[in-house]
Design a protein around this nucleic acid. Structure first.
Lengths: 221, 221
DNA sequence: TTATAAACAGACCGGTTGTCCTGTTTTGTC
DNA sequence: GACAAAACAGGACAACCGGTCTGTTTATAA
């Protein structure tokens, strides 16, 4: 895929950071697409253009590599697609909605659902190893805490008085995770919008305006 | 673990159905606890007390075994813990709540969270093979459809007029799936109750009574 | 009883896996 | 330039994996 500077056998250039980054790039993508156990180090080495010695130098074991992927890449992905947008949004609810819509739009554009990187690895590795579990739980915790903090900020501004921050955060993360799980399995991002709509229809601020009772969903019968 | 009738080398008793059931039992448990790729046929054979020839006779490939587990066991588990209770409940919402609470109580009792069998396999296998994906998507679909049907039944009884059946079903399944994912990763079933509470607080029937605006959650500050 | 197929036993094989090990090259430091 | 440590190359290896194969035993039906 990507061109790599493997031209001269007689001339070598040490680039530890670049090599490490390349390995993490490949591992992140492969763990996401195929999972941890289905990704062999041989495949990763070939894809990254790295020899066994180099890989072993940076990541002594496969577990160490996966741990690095979780702590550096998966955590960063959650930070980028969730935590930062929610912090930057006008309100917590607007932030949640914008993320749902942004992800749904992205999935529709690329026409393929790879699933949530965190959930993918969490399901496969949480019970496999205590270190994996701890690392993954930390990312989940940071994700939820960021949303809860945002609710608390809204509350200090006089909004969301009837909302429990932790519960709201748990619901948002759970709904997104589950929706992505279904979207991945069905290879259809529509369920993301279904969940967002159901969430917004039901969970608007307790003190907000009365919901419209217009009969819109006749197709049920 | 379980005693098996492997005492007489000179006397054998053919029991195809029993043997098949034993293999499925072991495979279901191992796929649930360790995942598909991390479960070797050797381990399964040893745990079930079955030889390679017998296993191959009933399940030609590992994929065939997994497919059988999905279609016979995982689908049955969803039917038992979700579809039947939702059908039997007074209303769809009551059914959803009762399932959440029943599962949470069960997890708290056994003190360990293995996760949702369907989601566990869905994350690992959806992208691995089209047959896996189709089988798993079918279970998800039946799950959601059962909840949507229950909402429609409520609507015929005059309730839930402002609720979109499909969206509600998607939200319920997504929330449960995501909550179980977090519960498994954190090894804490509390998030299930958090999600249920947030869901019920937010998503009560649109035409129902006004939500109480009592200030209950002061702990946020 | 006998034929016939299903049910099961158990060894075997090619390929793959993750890891280790020894050696070589590059890089930084004095 | 000398030296040490880091960075990298690449082969070796033992364990394991899933699948196949041949042969034997049990059940079934004629």
């Amino acid at each position: 895929m990507t061109a790599r500077p493997k031209v001269r056998p007689g001339k070598r250039t040490n680039d530890p950071e670049g090599l490490r980054k390349r390995v993490l790039d490949v591992a992140e993508a492969s763990f996401q697409a195929r999972g941890y156990h289905a990704s062999s180090l041989g495949d990763l080495m070939a894809a990254a253009g790295v020899t066994g010695g180099a890989l072993h130098h940076h990541f002594p074991t496969k577990k160490a590599l996966a741990l690095a992927v979780i702590e550096e890449r998966v955590a960063a992905a959650v930070e980028e697609t969730w935590i930062a947008p929610v912090k930057a949004a006008g309100t917590a609810r607007e932030g949640v909605r914008s993320v749902f819509e942004a992800v749904a739009a992205e999935l529709e554009q690329q026409g393929f659902v790879r699933g949530c990187p965190l959930n993918n690895l969490a399901h496969e590795l949480s019970l496999a190893d205590p270190d994996f579990r701890a690392a993954l739980a930390g990312v989940f915790s940071a994700w939820r805490e960021a949303i809860a903090d945002r609710i608390r900020a809204d509350q200090q501004a006089g909004r969301e008085q009837g909302t429990d921050p932790q519960r709201f955060a748990a619901l948002a993360v759970a709904t997104y995770s589950g929706a992505m799980s279904m979207a991945k399995t069905a290879q259809d991002s529509g369920v993301l919008r279904d969940c967002l709509n159901a969430l917004e229809q039901g969970t608007a601020s307790a003190g907000a305006k009365r919901r419209r009772r217009v009969l819109r969903q006749y197709k049920a019968f």
